[in-house]
Amino acid sequence: MRAIVMKAIGGPEVLQAADAPEPQLPRAHRMIHVRKAGINFADVHVRTGTYLADIELPYVPGNEVMGMDDQGRRVVALTRGGGYASQVAAHRMTTWPVPDEVTDEQALALTLQGNTAWHLLYTCIGLTPSDTVVISAAAGGVGSLAVQLAAHTGARVIGLASTPERRTLASELGAAAVIDSRSDDLTQAVLDAAGGPVTAVLEMTGGRVHEQLLATLAPLGRMAVYGYADGTPGTAPGRMVLERSLTVRGLWLPHLYPVRGALSESMTALYNLVVAGQLRAITAHQWPLDQAADAHRALEARNITGKAMLHVD
């Protein structure tokens, strides 16, 4: 089969197209004939050796796919690697059929990033209509969906985005206010936009941004952490957490893979919102499989809005 194979840790150039053996099919797994493979920032961490789980080289990256199963059904699946390939074995608990009313691209956008947005908002911070929530990377794959879900819930959304075009998109998706994520004093910028401290934050940048957004939380505020795009995981100061009775909770989606019903329920809810026209999946960025390196360069350069994917078939 055709695949993107990493033989070393490094820059985008280590993503090389090659012929690879077909995957084994363990018990309770299904073979997926891949049409599209999702690209996520987690894949950059895999490539650079900063991922939360160890990998063994040579390695085929990619944790989500859309394609056909052996029964000829359109499906999406979450995997533990192997997605940048023409075939992948996926566990039946993390494989779902795609409704006829949902396109291939929409379904893939919902699989990893949609489920992440859903569980950040509803599992981690328990979003309610009374919340004011700050959403990092509000025009990105997770962020663009989270903005819409939060606004649909009735919460007030403060979006962060790095360019005027991205800030316009976040506003169109439902953010009540959008600020420049590169602001020197991000804490004050958020407080000004929100009219005071906020009740919830979704954070994926790490480092100084993590610290500045933590400082925007009101007493009893909640922060959900789902990444560290700048390469430095954030650290929540214990004194601040205690003084304000803050909750800081991480989310690494694979921990939900074995939880029966958790992802199937959120996947169904996301499908229903798309079919009802209440959730828009932004899917403009696609590359052929053998241009995976170019896709990673675009992702690292922050040139992506919405979902990035590889076209495999």
Score class of each variant (00 low, 15 high):
A175R: 02
V76W: 02
Y84M: 14
A175S: 13
L186G: 09
A175N: 06
S86Q: 13
V102N: 06
A193L: 08
R156M: 03
R166I: 07
S86D: 15
D100A: 14
D104F: 04
M93S: 15
A176D: 13
H119D: 09
D192G: 07
T163W: 00
A77V: 12
P97D: 14
Q106K: 10
V178D: 05
A177F: 04
P99V: 09
A146H: 08
L186F: 08
I158E: 01
S86A: 13
V178G: 08
T111A: 14
A189M: 07
I135R: 01
V157S: 03
A109Q: 03
G196N: 12
V157Q: 07
A117V: 01
S171F: 00
C124N: 13
A176L: 01
R167Y: 00
L78P: 09
V190N: 02
A193G: 14
R80A: 09
W118L: 05
V133Y: 13
A107H: 00
P164H: 02
V147K: 01
I125N: 03
G196T: 15
D185F: 03
A85S: 11
V142H: 05
S130W: 02
T163S: 15
E105C: 06
T94A: 09
L191A: 04
V142Q: 00
A89Q: 11
T168D: 15
L169D: 01
I158K: 02
M93N: 11
A109P: 11
R167M: 12
H119A: 10
A189H: 04
P164K: 00
T187M: 07
G195Y: 12
A90S: 08
V142A: 02
A161P: 10
S162K: 01
A146G: 12
V88S: 07
A138Q: 03
V98T: 10
G82K: 00
Q188C: 03
